[in-house]
Design a protein around this nucleic acid. Structure first.
Lengths: 203, 203
DNA sequence: CCAGATAACTGAATGGCATTAAATTAATTT
DNA sequence: AAATTAATTTAATGCCATTCAGTTATCTGG
C-alpha cells in the first residue's frame, strides 16, 4: 500500500501533523480547518485523504505527537534530574503543569481524544500515556524506598497523582482556578506543592 | 423584551434544555443536532433562535443545569450526611465520581465549556462551580478542626482535591484508568480512597 | 370588538466545512 | 514505451448551524 515516494516528495503526513501543531499553538481554540492544514502543507484538501482516513485520524496523530513531546521533552528530563526521589516527583509535577500551560490547545486535544473511526484504536495512544504513567509510577516507588507513602500500591498512587495534576491543568486552562491566584503559573505551582506536602506528611 | 407568553405556551427554553439533557444521556458523544432538539421540543429549528442566541447558548444552559444537578442532587446531599468531617469529605468524593459516571456526556460538557459568544460570560457558570467548591472547602476546614491537614490553607487543599477527583473522573471516562481495574465503579472508588488515606496519614 | 404594533413561528435560502466522485497527471514496472 | 498503479485535482455532495422574508398569532389601546 505505502509505495515509496520520490525522495524529495513533500512527506505529507509529517508536514500535516507539524502544520496542525502550529495551528493549535497559534489559535487558542482546538478548531482548525482541513483547508488550512492543506494550505500550510502545500497540497489540496482531497490529497490529504490519501494519507489520513479522515480528519480524526490527523487529530489522533497530533494527539500522539503531543504525548511524545510530553514524555521526551518534559517528563523524561525531569526523571533524570538530580536529587532525591521526592525531588524528582516534584520536578515531574511542575514539568507536567508547564507543558500544559505552554501548549494549551494541544493539551486539550490530548485529553479530549477524537473518536476513533479506526478499528485499531487503543494500542499506541494507550501505550504513550502508559509510558508517561510508568515514569510516574517508578518515581513513586522510589519515593516509597525512602519511607514515604508506606503500604500504598505505587501504581494506585501514581494514577491518583496523575489525576490530580491533570485535573488541575484542565481546570486552570478553563480559568476555573480560584480567582485569587495572580497568574496561571502560580495557580499551576500550588497544587503540585500541596500534593508534595501531603506526601511528605506521610513520612 | 421577554413578553409574557400564553400560560399554556410550550416554554421552549426549559424544554430545549431538558431535551438536550435527554439526548446527552442517550448518546455517549456530546453531539446532537439542533434539528433533534427542535423535534423533541416540538417546534421548528428557527423558532429555537427566538430563545437562544445560538447553539452555544443552549450548551451553556445545559452546562449550568449540570452544575445545578451536581450540587443539589449529589454534593449537598453528601455534605448533609451523618458522620465525621472526614466521612463527609469521603462521601462527597464518591458522590462526585458517581455523578460523573452516571452522566458521562453531561460531565464532559460541563468541563469543556462551549465558547461564550456572549459578553456576560463568567458570572453564573463561575458561581455554580464556585458553590460546589465552597462545599468542599467547608468540609476541608471542618476536617482540619479534627487535626487533619495541619497548617494548610483549606481553599488550596479544596482546589487540589477537586482537581484530583475531576482528573480521575475525566481519565476514567476516557478509558484511561489503568487497565487492570475491573470496572469503572472500582476505578472511581480507588482514587478517592487513596486521597483519604493521604489525608488521614497527616493526622 | 377592532386596528395597529409586536412577538413568535415557518419554509426556504445561505454558507462553512468535511467527505466523495470523476477525471487527470505523474510515477513505476515490464 | 505501453500499461498499471498511485497521487493529485477540480468539481460535486451532504450535513448542519445560522439567517431571511414572509406569515400567523398575541397583545394593546380605543
Amino acid at each position: 500500500m505505502a509505495r515509496p515516494r520520490k525522495a524529495d516528495s513533500p512527506d505529507i503526513p509529517n508536514r500535516a501533523v507539524t502544520a496542525a501543531l502550529s495551528l493549535l499553538a497559534e489559535r487558542d481554540g482546538p478548531d482548525f480547518t482541513l483547508a488550512e492544514v492543506a494550505r500550510a502543507v502545500g497540497c489540496s484538501v482531497p490529497a490529504f485523504y490519501n494519507h489520513f482516513r479522515d480528519k480524526n485520524a490527523l487529530l489522533r496523530a497530533v494527539h500522539d505527537a503531543g504525548f511524545h513531546r510530553l514524555h521526551d521533552d518534559k517528563l523524561a528530563l525531569a526523571a533524570r534530574t538530580e536529587g532525591s526521589a521526592l525531588d524528582r516527583l516534584r520536578a515531574g509535577g511542575h514539568a507536567y503543569m508547564a507543558f500544559a500551560l505552554e501548549n494549551p490547545a494541544l493539551y486539550r486535544l490530548m485529553f479530549s481524544p477524537p473518536p476513533s473511526s479506526d478499528l485499531e484504536d487503543g494500542p499506541l495512544a494507550h501505550d504513550l500515556g502508559r509510558r508517561c504513567l510508568d515514569l510516574l509510577t517508578r518515581a513513586v516507588a522510589d519515593s516509597q524506598k525512602t519511607g514515604a507513602l508506606p503500604g500504598q500500591d505505587p501504581a494506585v498512587v501514581a494514577f491518583t497523582l496523575w489525576s490530580a495534576v491533570h485535573g488541575a491543568a484542565s481546570l486552570i486552562l478553563q480559568d476555573r482556578a480560584p480567582e485569587d491566584t495572580a497568574s496561571r503559573r502560580e495557580a499551576a505551582r500550588i497544587p503540585v506543592e500541596t500534593l508534595m506536602a501531603l506526601i511528605t506528611a506521610s513520612l
